[in-house]
Design a protein around this nucleic acid. Structure first.
Lengths: 104, 104
DNA sequence: TCAACATACCTCGCGCTGCGAGGTATGTCA
DNA sequence: TGACATACCTCGCAGCGCGAGGTATGTTGA
């Protein structure tokens, strides 16, 4: 199926180190409100990716509050590449079907 | 989430009346093996769409064997439009995110 | 002639993923 | 001091996808 949330997270974190709460807003912004991933999605995915070694966490105190910043590891970049490719495949597959049918 | 199978089915049937078994192969072909919807996906979706009035079924005997041909109703065409639009939205949303991040 | 394969239909039930809702703690501002 | 924002987290349900299995008929070839 999808793996879309995972793709989006890795992509954002690859561009810039970020923490969970920020990612929620960031993704909403960058997709133009189209895709809204709540915290119930973000945090589990984040933890999963850290577990599998695709992300590295770093606790940081900012203005008395603790944030957990995540950055992409080499393994994560590899994973990102796979997911991007996968997304291309799916996208072009579906678009081919849509195009083919309307041409028929 | 997706609704991708539904979209693909409606799209194909909108172009041409077809039966379930045929759709399985057709979709595999038209998406270039990228997307393979098994019978366990096709038939339930087909029945659901018929139930909701988006499709109309027509039994037909061909070479002794019975086939159930489905065609799209007005309601189905409307539904198809919605799903297509939805797919555009998702697609451009994700691509925006991918583009924005790589530009960063 | 009969096994094996293709056509054509169908359903059950598992598995995974997404996600809303709820819960904690701290800082800030009226 | 209460309300709101920031920041983290988890539980558990819901829904969808889909593999596996089941029926029945026609065809083909050893």
């Amino acid at each position: 199926m999808s793996g879309v949330p995972e793709l989006l997270l890795l992509q954002q974190l690859n561009a810039e180190e970020m923490y969970g709460y920020e990612l929620v807003k960031r993704i909403r912004g960058v997709t133009g409100e189209t895709i809204t991933l709540g915290e119930g999605v973000i945090y589990p995915v984040l933890h999963g990716l850290e577990q599998s070694g695709a992300l590295k966490a770093r606790r940081k105190k900012v203005a008395g509050r603790t944030r957990v910043y995540y950055s992409v590891t080499a393994k994560g970049r590899k994973r990102l590449g796979i997911l991007q490719h996968e997304w291309q495949r799916i996208q072009s597959g579906i678009n081919a079907a849509l195009g083919a049918a309307s041409r028929a």
